[in-house]
Design a protein around this nucleic acid. Structure first.
Length: 401
DNA sequence: GTCCAGGTTA
DNA sequence: TAACCTGGAC
């Protein structure tokens, strides 16, 4: 028995003994698997489960998804990030018609389905012997076969796909291709972890080149990552325009950053809408994105002379309590949390009376996001940056001046 | 606090 | 090759 065959069989055997009962593993509906694969690309299993359940309840078939407005799609996706994936899933549903293509190579042509997702759907839903490579698989294969190339490079990627394909070819005839793929990913997620791989309990230990060479801590070779400090800063001001229990929100253009999501109008838009802008901000937030640091300032505004702005696809009012039923990004949710925690409208605005320290409630930590920092200073963050613990713990303090 | 993971598209 | 988001790990 050759080595690839031994490795493939060991992976499947191991997978069968440890596989978890996840909702999308109870079906071979290619659409359901497609949705789960897209969600899982960027999020932990525990987070995906409720999103997947809500999604499948709302859009149970590819036809219902295709028929839904993008706005509804983004609302269900809101909070998962990488919103282009939801947009692509929606676009994909529109092009496939009643049913998904039946092979990996045809699946590859659907918007949002790249090499990984094509392999996942084809192998899991259709039982095709289609390989796949994701981050977990890269790590496992780079170690098992001691691949020294940067796994993100063209050369490394090619080597990984060749290895994954060879394993699939070598797999026992009666075995399920989907189980090999899922077994590889499971191994990477639970045993062959980025740091401190648990080689002692690994079913591939005896077959692993990195283990034999003692190089499991050096592999895979990953490309250097940019430090957060070096990311370009994107500073934006959003305007809180409230009428009774409603606020004004705008829908961003469909493409690009936070595409299609609703947010508080930015400063330029608010001005064009005839809004009078307060001088003093009520909150600062910051968030690290892949390619940028995002600093958000929130300021109140009053009045709304117009209800359309070229910068937004739509402008509308909505009850504050209902904003989260729209597609909104995490930073917008954080602004709402902060407001609900200690509403700035309750502060007597024109008065220059004594300052009030605000306290955050303990429940704020339930929405912690450790990539996010907040500032307490009402001056530009440049002057005094004081890190807090989460996106939701923005403190605001009307300055006595 | 900081770092890190993670596929597809243009 | 760069853009794209969030939250869990350390």
């Amino acid at each position: 028995m050759d080595r690839s065959r031994e490795i493939a069989d060991a992976i499947v055997t191991h997978y069968q003994s440890v596989k978890r009962d996840l909702p999308w593993r109870r079906t071979r509906d290619p659409y359901a698997i497609w949705v789960s694969e897209i969600m899982l690309q960027q999020t932990r299993v525990a987070t995906v489960i409720p999103y997947w359940e809500r999604w499948m309840a709302k859009f149970p078939t590819v036809a219902t998804l295709a028929a839904a407005p993008l706005d509804d799609v983004l609302a269900v996706w809101a909070g998962l990030g990488y919103y282009s994936r939801a947009r692509n899933l929606h676009a994909g549903a529109k092009v496939v018609g009643d049913a998904l293509p039946r092979t990996a190579s045809e699946l590859r042509g659907v918007p949002g389905i790249g090499p990984y997702t094509a392999g996942a759907i084809a192998s899991i839903a259709y039982g095709e012997r289609a390989p796949l490579v994701d981050g977990n698989v890269s790590r496992v294969l780079a170690r098992v076969f001691a691949i020294e190339d940067d796994v993100k490079s063209t050369k490394g990627t090619k080597a990984l796909w060749i290895r994954a394909g060879a394993l699939m070819t070598a797999l026992a005839p009666a075995a399920e291709p989907g189980e090999l793929n899922q077994g590889l990913m499971e191994l990477g997620a639970t045993i062959c972890t980025p740091t401190s791989p648990r080689c002692l309990v690994c079913p591939l230990a005896a077959l692993c080149a990195a283990k034999r060479l003692g190089r499991q801590d050096e592999l895979p070779v990953m490309p250097a990552r940019k430090k957060q400090e070096d990311l370009p800063l994107l500073a934006r001001t959003h305007v809180w325009i409230q009428f009774d229990d409603e606020i004004v929100v705008g829908r961003r253009p469909a493409e690009g950053l936070f595409g299609g999501l609703w947010e508080l109008p930015d400063l330029d838009a608010a001005k064009r809408l005839g809004v009078t802008i307060d001088r003093e901000p009520v909150a600062f937030l910051s968030q690290i994105l892949t390619h940028r640091r995002l600093d958000v300032t929130v300021v109140r505004g009053r009045g709304l002379a117009r209800d359309a702005d070229p910068g937004y696809e739509a402008i509308r009012r909505i009850r504050i309590a209902d904003v989260e039923t729209l597609g909104v990004a995490a930073v917008t949710v954080a602004i709402l949390r902060k407001y609900q925690d200690s509403p700035w409208t309750s502060i007597p605005r024109p008065s220059l009376s004594s300052p009030r320290a605000t306290r955050r409630s303990s429940k704020a930590s339930a929405f912690s996001a450790s990539t996010s920092k907040t500032t307490t200073s009402p001056t530009r963050p440049r002057a005094r940056r004081k890190a807090s613990t989460s996106l939701s713990t923005i403190k605001h303090r009307p300055r006595p001046r």
